[in-house]
Design a protein around this nucleic acid. Structure first.
Length: 257
DNA sequence: ATGCCGTGGAAACCACGA
């Protein structure tokens, strides 16, 4: 069973790319972020015609998350991150698919830092860690997949010294991420490739993809129940080189049945 | 050191992203 996360940066502009990726790679579950579409403008028919059941939480202009499941409908568990009724950003949706609980998240960017956006990011991370604590110990498989907007370590960015003041790499954010991992999650890409340079995002400009000036910010965290079932993990980095690509590449895990 | 690019929405510029 392959579970992928893919920040598509606008489902309107990215639909052909998304449909090609679903057709060629056939992930069993796909967590999408940055739909950038209101609820009623999500291309449900095209997704279903491609063979996927789907739930989504849209928002005009920004954010927006979805969970696709091949040949079945994801069973929705929640569509907001608990802890702040006044937070109206569409950044979290959670479902079970074939007995696996899957949280799909789009963590706030947080730039510029410091500032209100950075404070929002830290608050959101705090709420996310609280929610993750309720999931990590479950005696059932749980995977938290998405665009974390967190560079976990120096190995995960092409030039760490340039990013120390950025909201994706600031020490407060890295410490929060480490606190989350301390609950007992497994970073699947890092578990599969302990010592390699792996990126999931390349900026649109300055030929970042061609120079491999990337970041690893899309993550799949596995709880202890599912960790031992991990057989493979990777990044579909070639998708970043397709026509009209997102700036992120699909990132995935394979889980033994 | 920096939105130089890309998307969406509104209205031929701006907000936002990382």
């Amino acid at each position: 069973m392959r579970i992928a996360t893919y920040n598509i940066n606008g489902i309107g502009a990215r639909l052909p790319n998304l449909l090609r990726w679903l057709d060629e790679r056939a992930p069993d579950v796909a967590c999408l972020q940055e739909l950038k579409a209101p609820q009623e403008k999500f291309p449900e028919k095209e997704i279903r015609d491609a063979g996927y059941g789907v739930i989504w939480h849209g928002q005009k202009s920004w954010n927006g998350v979805a969970i696709l499941a091949r040949g079945t409908d994801p069973k929705e568990m929640r569509r907001v991150l608990p802890g702040d009724p006044e937070d109206v950003h569409s950044r979290y949706i959670e479902a079970t698919v074939h007995g696996v609980t899957i949280g799909c998240l789009y963590l706030p960017n947080g730039n510029p830092a410091p500032g209100p956006k950075f404070q929002y990011k830290l608050r959101w991370l705090d709420r996310f860690i609280d929610h993750a604590a309720t999931l990590v110990a479950r005696n059932e498989p749980v995977i938290l997949a998405g665009d974390y907007n967190v560079i976990p370590t120096e190995r995960d960015v092409y030039k760490p010294e340039r990013w120390v003041d950025d909201a994706l790499f600031r020490i407060e954010v890295r410490e929060e991420f480490a606190r989350l991992m301390g609950q007992g999650w497994t970073d699947a890409i890092r578990a599969r490739y302990p010592n390699e340079t792996i990126y999931t995002f390349w900026d649109f400009f300055r030929n970042a993809y061609e120079r491999n000036a990337g970041l690893r910010i899309d993550h799949l965290l596995l709880n202890q129940n599912v960790r031992d079932r991990l057989t493979d993990a990777g990044v579909d980095r070639d998708v970043r080189g397709w026509e009209r690509p997102s700036d992120h590449a699909p990132t995935w895990v394979d889980i033994r049945d």
